[in-house]
């Protein structure tokens, strides 16, 4: 078990390192000199350019630059945004809690909507409940999230004035307002993921319900609740867990757009603004941060997978 974990952690670290190299090189691959990218200015006198290059260490060989950069990141120095002038760490620090809360709420919505519907669809396969669930899943999969957001705003903010259409209030300041601002965005994001979860749960459960060991469970006279809830579900959890891990990545994608639509000053909006304003230091920082998050989440999911699968846990090798 430990060997497996170490191996996975090692690969994760390697991926993270390569990702950082990609991010590092990406910024320097942008047309125009890195000085332009890093400061946002376009004309320099040769002297000023030389000064900038020295200040940012751009005259050093590339690998050295990389190592310096990594050293700085590890120490928490992410630089300043040439657009806003603020330290990037501060900007990220402000935006991060918002995005985190949104992501967690969205995942909750997705789990609460997706998994029970998937289970229902599997046990009532071929009946109305199945068709309805599948229909809802298709709906969730096909709808553009930003449009869904706009429609909800139209309905609940413009037409009915029930929920606010933009902005953010911190939980510690006003819990009710906080949830009011996040309800629609979380719902929009959550339904997309819920659709995927529902399908995955359904197909996973259908597969386990066909197995021999479920037949044995029935032959033992156990009630349907126990057969489905204990025997079948337990074994389909593994596939569902993998999908949940993947969906975190999808959520992080969707977060960007949803924050735009709902005017939430989170990491997503930060990223999009940075992209449009060619704020490369910020883009660099956020890209690295997001990649790190995704990699960590995948590693955590590997852990969960291990816990769920006794074969892996005991033998130390994925079955």
């Amino acid at each position: 078990m430990r060997a497996y974990l170490l191996r996975r952690a090692g690969i994760s670290l390697l991926t993270l390192v390569i990702a950082s190299i990609v991010v590092f090189l990406g910024v320097r691959a942008v047309p125009g000199s890195p000085a332009v990218a890093l400061t946002g200015n376009t004309d320099f006198t040769p002297a000023a350019l030389a000064a900038i290059n020295r200040a940012y260490g751009l005259d050093k060989p590339l690998p050295v630059q990389y190592v310096d950069w990594v050293g700085q990141i590890v120490r928490g120095h992410l630089g300043s945004s040439p657009v806003t002038g603020l330290p990037i760490t501060t900007e990220i620090g402000n935006a991060f809690p918002i995005t985190t809360e949104l992501t967690i709420l969205s995942m909750l919505v997705a789990l609460l909507l997706g998994i029970p519907t998937g289970i229902l669809a599997a046990i009532r396969r071929g009946h109305t409940a199945d068709y309805v669930s599948n229909g809802l899943a298709l709906f969730g999969l096909s709808i553009p999230s930003f449009w869904f957001g706009i429609m909800l705003i139209l309905l609940l903010s413009v037409h009915f004035s029930v929920l606010p259409s933009a902005g953010f209030v911190s939980f510690s300041v006003n819990p009710a307002a906080n949830l009011a601002h996040l309800l629609m965005p979380a719902f929009v994001l959550g339904t997309g993921v819920a659709a995927v979860l529902m399908r995955q749960t359904r197909s996973g459960l259908l597969e386990t319900l066909r197995t021999d060991y479920v037949r044995t469970a029935r032959a033992k006279g156990l009630s349907e609740w126990v057969v489905v809830g204990k025997h079948a579900l337990r074994n389909s959890l593994v596939t569902v867990a993998t999908v949940i891990a993947l969906q975190f990545g999808v959520l992080l994608s969707g977060v960007a757009v949803t924050e735009e639509v709902f005017g939430l000053p989170g990491i997503g909006q930060l990223t999009i603004n940075a992209v449009f304003q060619r704020d490369y230091p910020t883009i660099q920082a956020v890209a690295l941060l997001t990649a790190a998050l995704v990699i960590i989440i995948n590693l955590v999911m590997d852990l969960v997978y291990m816990v769920l699968s006794p074969k892996v846990r005991l033998a130390g090798d994925p079955g």
Binding site: V22, S253, V275, I283, V294
Partner: peptide
Amino acid sequence: MRIADVLLAFPFLLLAVGLAAI
């Protein structure tokens, strides 16, 4: 696979947005 892993570490839409912006 390592390259795929790295690319997959960046959320799909953010990657697309980034590339398109570039």
